[in-house]
């Protein structure tokens, strides 16, 4: 165990898995010589060589498709998007090829590929570079969608994603690369996909949060504890397939739930979770499910406006009080 940043944890996962399986290769813009736009791939080129760590031209559709093709022929590509904003250019290959290949081929061609990179809001990069796209990808059967919130989760989940035999969308949070935490150095340390983590136990209200919102929710829980409200914080970690069981069990215990997310509310993941809770735990709810989402506008540049667009501790606290009739 050592305290490392999420950036380092991801780097360890990449290194360990590439050392473990020579069919794993990494490609993307600036992943090699530049050492990664966010330094997640630092040192990998020198260590593993240019055959395994490949700098691509800025050609997202092209290299995403190339990755899927390589996966069809037996390799296990890791495709880095410098940010997930650019994955929008590659969605044809992710959705029409990667997600559907196994089904269309009647089970003949699975696509073991990881599309990874930072997503969500960054710091003052305005509308085109601050987007939470998980609900796009989670919409499609055939894709798995993972969003870690701690360095340990990042490492364990990325290793599982690389070993997984299906296409995995692995969305890191740009603002969280520097967050620190304890991380195992056991090369066999993995965290299974599809399993939620209870980040904090509680009995009065449930807060479901993912990625950037997990630390925010934990702070909110701390504040509420002082007021005598005990909150359970659940991080689904994998958005698809979603561990709804853990969430529902918590709701049955607390009877009230707030779902926090940095993405837009409309057709978002929180909306889906709310719907599942309503279907599975209607009779256990003492209050309507409450969402705390990013503001439903493109991300602005100005610092004050940007701040206003992303959910804060106070909003989660207020939402928990609302569902607690306080």
């Amino acid at each position: 165990m050592a305290i490392v940043t999420m950036r380092e944890a991801l780097n360890q996962a990449l290194r360990e898995e590439m050392q473990r399986d020579k069919n794993v290769f990494l490609m993307g813009e600036e992943v090699g010589a530049y050492q990664g736009a966010y330094k997640v791939t630092k040192g990998l080129l020198e260590e593993l060589g240019p055959k395994r760590v490949i700098d691509t031209p800025i050609t997202e559709l092209g290299f995403a498709g190339l990755g899927v093709g390589a996966a069809m022929a037996g390799l296990r590509p890791i495709v880095e998007f410098m940010t997930f904003n650019f994955s929008i250019l590659a969605t044809d290959q992710i959705i029409n090829s990667a997600a559907k290949m196994l089904y269309m081929s009647g089970g003949q061609f699975n696509i073991p590929i990881v599309f990874r990179g930072p997503g969500g809001s960054a710091f003052q990069v305005s509308s085109q570079h601050s987007q939470a796209l998980e609900s796009w990808f989670a919409y499609f059967p055939g894709l798995k969608v993972v969003m870690p919130s701690t360095p340990a989760d990042a490492k364990g989940l990325l290793k599982s994603a690389i070993r997984d035999n299906d296409p995995v969308i692995f969305i890191e949070q740009e603002r969280m690369y520097g967050n620190k935490g304890e991380v195992s150095d056991d090369p066999e340390f993995t965290i299974p996909l599809g399993v939620a983590d209870i980040k904090r136990e509680g009995k009065d209200a449930t807060i479901v949060a993912r990625s950037l919102m997990v630390p925010v929710a934990l702070k909110a829980a701390e504040a509420l504890e002082k007021e005598g409200i005990s909150c359970e914080v659940i991080d689904p970690r994998t958005i698809r397939p979603l561990d709804i069981k853990t969430i529902v069990e918590s709701v049955k215990k607390t009877n009230r739930v707030v779902i926090a997310e940095e993405s837009h509310p409309f057709c978002g993941v929180a909306a889906e979770i709310a719907s599942e809770i309503m279907e599975r735990a209607f009779d256990y709810l003492d209050a309507p499910v409450k969402r705390v989402s990013g503001v439903d506008v493109p991300m602005p540049y100005a610092k004050n406006l940007e701040d206003a667009a992303i959910p804060k501790v106070e909003q989660i606290v207020a939402a928990v009080k609302e569902v607690s009739y306080l």
């Binding site: 009877n255 209607f282 009779d283 709810l285 003492d286 209050a287 009739y325």
Partner: peptide, 28 residues
Amino acid sequence: SPLAARMAAESGIDLRSVNGSGPGGRII
């Protein structure tokens, strides 16, 4: 609330006699 309705039914409580303390008089 769905939960209160279920609890009342299980306990044989006639909700018509209950004063709701939630928003808009919701029985919780």
